[in-house]
Design a protein around this nucleic acid. Structure first.
Lengths: 333, 333
DNA sequence: GTGAAAGCGCTAACAG
DNA sequence: CTGTTAGCGCTTTCAC
């Protein structure tokens, strides 16, 4: 329970026989205080178990030493890496980390930002579902950093999806596949668009027929319908929006007695926990998601000092790599 | 970026031609203000886009409308459910949710609590690694709720481990197993102790030989050494501290060509993501971890109002259930 | 029913 | 180098 009275800077001041401001200085700007005084004050503070009030500091300085991360869906293991990376980095910088799930809703994102605006120094928007325009406008008022999303002029950290998508197509092409299906995720998903464009372009260049189905909920359960939809297309390769969906597809195909990769090859994105031990293990595009979270925090911290104009357009692009496992193989026939 | 000046309660007061205190009342205690005045004030506030400063409110009231959850390890999917449940509940109550990973270290827990003490209304300690005494002492000063941990006199929400452990043993007994090994988790883990006691007692009652090995790191990689250790004991059944460890054991056994469940049966705890699609799929004790997170937040909120004495000893015990899959089968021979 | 004023705990001028 | 003073934005007596 919060004890009735916590020791304040005034308690320390009185006990040490100095002014409160001196205590404050001894704590913040040690060099602006006589060495002896400082020692003394610090000693008293220590003895009294003084702990500064972040609230009071924040109220007065406008800095909260806090960042908030908005994540569309915590059900999706994809975000765990990002969250972990961001939390670690924030923690290392002594920054408090607020986590908020927005349930795949742009409105929720807005509401949360509104609510937290005065309590944080900035927002980490992970795979935001908001439109470019909305985000752009928000950036006028708030310190933002995007994760796995790019908006013109705003700082972002994204794990490459384009080069990786091309690698996927090349991999499939080299296995002799001539047609592939992309199972798309939420239509507000920026990466979904990126992936499809890259897949589509590469496929055309390599003479592969590429079609898109969906959107499907990016969850294991979404894989059922997705798999059935794939089978009617007759495609020999499936690229799913993420590993969850891919795993769902694997399960449904197994149920229906379709051999993977014998009849159909399956590829996912993210290399989530479990991608290596599902059956068959999943070929997937892996990327340093935690690194993306880490970088985004850094971008935020960089801009924390700035106060007027919009942040500089810093973009961090992290490399992904294709992890080839058992779910892809030569095209049938 | 934080705009230079946000609209304050004074701006609203001036614009509405009333005192700041009236604005405050109109917002907080609508009934203590003339209906007409209230409407007017609210209108002006709305028009000016006024948003209260949580910091100022907190500083003055002592209430932060924020809780912090301390989690030993975010790498472990086991915690995802708890985190999700807690975040959801907090969010629904308009409570800001701070997440902090303590890297399996009791010291880190203490440090974080110290750091956040003045910024939050209470702490959620998930599977805390601290000693009973330390937690007990902390409770003098802070509002605490425990998740999957019990300490005399403190509010807690735990997913039952004892009844479930008994079920595990009964399950194994009914399959004819006569010896089992428990692979224990971190020795500071309270649930690890609970589980072992329950397993051990039940085993004795049913005439099964039960031994404990470990501690092992509760991760997939920990399963390698654990599996090897099991094999030398000659036991026909293994109960792992959690599913990660169990999955690690499955992999190692597969590598070594040991049939599961043909030669050895394997059981885990938690029913994490992936437990249903690893091979063989994992028999495991499932429980409503998200419910535990949710309940813990409620316990915290209940006590938030109280300010002096320690919180009442509210304990929530949530039922678990055994999910039988392919990793357990009749004892060999 | 409403206003004036004090104060939550801290920092940042401004004097001295 | 250090003390005094004035707020940060809000809530809460205490008067009127």
């Amino acid at each position: 329970m919060n004890s009735p009275k916590r020791t304040t800077i005034y308690d320390v001041a009185r006990e040490a026989g100095v002014a409160a401001s001196t205590v404050s200085r001894a704590l913040r700007n040690p060099r602006r205080v006589n060495a002896a005084t400082r020692e003394h004050v610090l000693g008293v503070a220590e003895r009294l178990g003084y702990r500064p009030s972040p609230l009071a500091t924040a109220l007065q300085s406008g800095r909260t030493a806090t960042v908030a991360m908005l994540v569309p869906d915590i059900t999706n293991p994809h975000f765990f890496g990002t969250i972990r990376g961001a939390e670690r980095r924030a923690s290392a910088a002594g920054i408090t980390f607020i986590l908020s799930y927005t349930e795949e809703s742009a409105d929720n994102e807005l509401t949360q930002i509104e609510r937290l605006a005065r309590s944080v120094d900035g927002f980490l928007l992970a795979s935001s579902r908001m439109s470019d325009e909305t985000i752009w406008e928000l950036a006028e008022e708030h310190n933002l950093a995007l994760v796995n999303r790019e908006v013109r002029g705003l700082p972002s950290a994204v794990v490459d999806s384009r080069v990786g998508s091309r690698q996927i197509v090349e991999h499939l092409a080299s296995l002799g596949h001539e047609s592939m299906v992309y199972l798309s995720g939420p239509h507000q998903s920026w990466v979904a668009g990126e992936r499809w464009h890259a897949l589509h372009d590469s496929a055309r260049n390599l003479g592969i027929r590429a079609t898109r189905l969906g959107p499907f909920p990016p969850k294991v359960v979404g894989g059922g319908a997705a798999a059935d939809a794939v089978l009617v297309t007759g495609a020999t390769a499936v690229v799913a929006h993420n590993d969850l969906l891919a795993i769902g597809v694997l399960r449904r195909l197994a149920e229906r007695g379709v051999a993977v990769p014998g009849q159909v090859s399956v590829v996912g994105y993210d290399d989530i926990f479990g991608a290596d031990f599902c059956v068959p293990s999943l070929t997937t595009l892996a990327g340093p998601q935690d690194e993306a979270g880490r970088s985004a925090v850094e971008l935020l911290l960089e801009n924390r000092s700035r106060s007027t104009a919009r942040a500089p357009d810093r973009r961090v692009m992290l490399p992904s790599h294709l992890v080839i496992r058992e779910s892809t193989g030569p095209a049938p026939g």
